[in-house]
């Protein structure tokens, strides 16, 4: 199946459009990161370089905080590993959709694979319209996320001190509202609902775990419960059919 020029552009722009509300939520964090990185002794080029090359908000923040606190390279690198481990789930979940792409495509999309991109891209892949160009949607969403992170890191590096009360804007609610709008329609059956409730409960209960590990633990717990209930339901059905 090939992908016409028109549909490529349409998917690309669709990807950009769908990730826009999530960009809003990351703006204050990008500014804050740029500003904190300079405070921690990074040169403007190094602060921007971290955003350009690492492109992982949570890990960037923790790295800066650890460095400012005098931690060594080994600590920062192992923390990066732990914080970003959740991306393994995204990589696995999207692999069946990107496996047909050439390796330069797969590498580029993987480099740009963030929480936000995953949220909108999995939704696009779940829509069953048989489009052969969904990777252009992925590209558009991921590219917009990347460009946004770079621009506002730069703003933070040069003007961070002059933007007051960044954290109190509450723009992170835009991300929560978007994720809510994506999740709620997915809760169509008991296993999904249970997976969501268990993941939420475990995330709250394990909130004292360091390095966003609670997210990984919570997600795994939710997944296990979802699968168990799905199997249980299916066994019941086949049991009834046998009777």
């Amino acid at each position: 199946m090939s992908c016409s020029r028109d549909s490529r552009i349409r998917e690309l722009l669709d990807g950009v459009r769908h990730i826009l509300p999530l960009l809003l939520g990351t703006i204050p964090f990008a500014i804050l990161f740029g500003s904190l990185a300079v405070d921690a002794g990074f040169s403007p080029a190094q602060a921007q370089g971290m955003s350009l090359l690492v492109f992982a908000g949570a890990a960037q923040f923790v790295a800066i905080t650890l460095l400012a606190g005098g931690a060594g390279v080994a600590v920062v690198l192992s923390t990066t590993l732990v914080i970003n481990l959740r991306h393994l789930l995204y990589s696995a979940a999207l692999q069946p959709h990107v496996r047909h792409l050439p390796s330069r495509w797969r590498a580029l999309l993987a480099f740009w694979l963030t929480d936000e991109a995953y949220a909108v891209v999995q939704q696009r892949y779940a829509r069953d319209d048989g489009s052969p160009c969904k990777h252009w949607f992925f590209l558009g969403a991921a590219m917009a996320m990347y460009a946004n992170w770079q621009v506002f890191t730069l703003v933070g590096v040069f003007f961070g001190q002059r933007v007051p009360n960044l954290a109190s804007w509450g723009l992170d609610f835009a991300m929560l509202a978007t994720f809510t709008g994506i999740v709620v329609p997915m809760l169509r059956n008991r296993p999904s609902l249970a997976a969501a409730l268990v993941a939420s409960g475990v995330a709250l209960a394990s909130r004292d775990l360091p390095y966003q590990l609670e997210m990984l633990v919570a997600a795994l717990a939710g997944i296990v419960v979802g699968v168990l209930l799905e199997r249980h339901g299916r066994n019941n059905l086949s049991g009834e059919a046998a009777r």
Binding site: L89, L176, V183, L197
Partner: peptide, 12 residues
Amino acid sequence: YVPVAVLSAIVV
């Protein structure tokens, strides 16, 4: 179940 579990663990 990845999207439902991960996004709930972020939102709630």
